[in-house]
Computed example of a mutant assay.
Amino acid sequence: MRRAVCPGSFDPITNGHLDIIARASKLYDVVHVAVMINQSKQGLFTVDERMALIREVTSDYGNVVVESHHGLLVDFCKERDIPAIVKGLRAVSDFDYELQMAQMNNGLSGVETLFVPTNPTYSFLSSSLVKEVAAWGGDVSHLLPEPVHRALAGRLAERG
């Protein structure tokens, strides 16, 4: 079985993330979406909330498994016998950082990283930018799956 992982914080998952996951799901038998836990960052959504939203918006794919992980991504891959990491690249600036990570991951464990160019529609998109624009009242509905937009609007209203 061909297996890969799409890692990230997904706080929240955007249409850009979803595009990369969807494309990976066509190339691999099983795609693990790894919600990486960074204890030093306070997310807008809890890890469990992020995982639930990802499960909801990827449910039609049929071959996506959503999990969380605290620690090195290569350890996640080793534990599940996953030989490939799939990462989206938005711009050349992403490549510099991601190449270093790919080389480190390969050196640590032999895991390969495949870079997928982001759909130009989403080349500027990041979770941080979406949260910032939404917090200032900007319309981000076209940048997020509908259930995620609803959850984001609700969370921002709570913090009001």
Results as ranks from 00 to 15, higher is better:
1 M>R: 05
2 R>Q: 11
6 C>F: 12
7 P>G: 05
9 S>Y: 14
9 S>L: 03
10 F>D: 08
11 D>S: 06
11 D>Q: 08
12 P>T: 10
13 I>S: 08
15 N>Q: 12
16 G>N: 06
16 G>I: 04
18 L>Q: 06
18 L>A: 11
18 L>W: 08
19 D>M: 07
20 I>M: 05
24 A>L: 06
26 K>R: 14
26 K>C: 09
28 Y>K: 08
29 D>V: 01
29 D>P: 01
31 V>E: 11
32 H>R: 01
32 H>K: 00
32 H>V: 02
33 V>A: 01
33 V>D: 07
33 V>Y: 10
35 V>P: 04
36 M>G: 15
39 Q>I: 12
39 Q>R: 13
39 Q>D: 15
40 S>A: 14
42 Q>W: 00
42 Q>N: 13
44 L>I: 15
51 M>L: 04
52 A>W: 01
53 L>G: 10
54 I>S: 03
54 I>F: 01
57 V>P: 03
58 T>L: 04
59 S>A: 15
59 S>F: 06
61 Y>T: 00
62 G>T: 06
62 G>C: 10
63 N>G: 08
66 V>R: 02
69 H>V: 05
73 L>T: 08
79 E>V: 10
83 P>C: 02
83 P>H: 02
83 P>L: 00
84 A>M: 11
86 V>N: 09
88 G>W: 09
90 R>K: 05
93 S>C: 00
96 D>W: 01
98 E>M: 02
99 L>Q: 10
101 M>C: 08
101 M>A: 10
103 Q>L: 14
104 M>Q: 12
105 N>S: 12
109 S>I: 01
117 P>M: 14
121 T>K: 13
121 T>V: 06
121 T>G: 02
123 S>M: 09
125 L>I: 09
126 S>A: 12
128 S>C: 02
131 K>Y: 05
133 V>C: 05
134 A>Q: 03
139 D>N: 15
139 D>S: 02
143 L>H: 02
145 P>S: 11
145 P>Q: 12
146 E>H: 06
147 P>A: 06
150 R>Y: 06
153 A>S: 11
153 A>L: 13
156 L>H: 10
156 L>E: 14
158 E>M: 13
160 G>T: 10
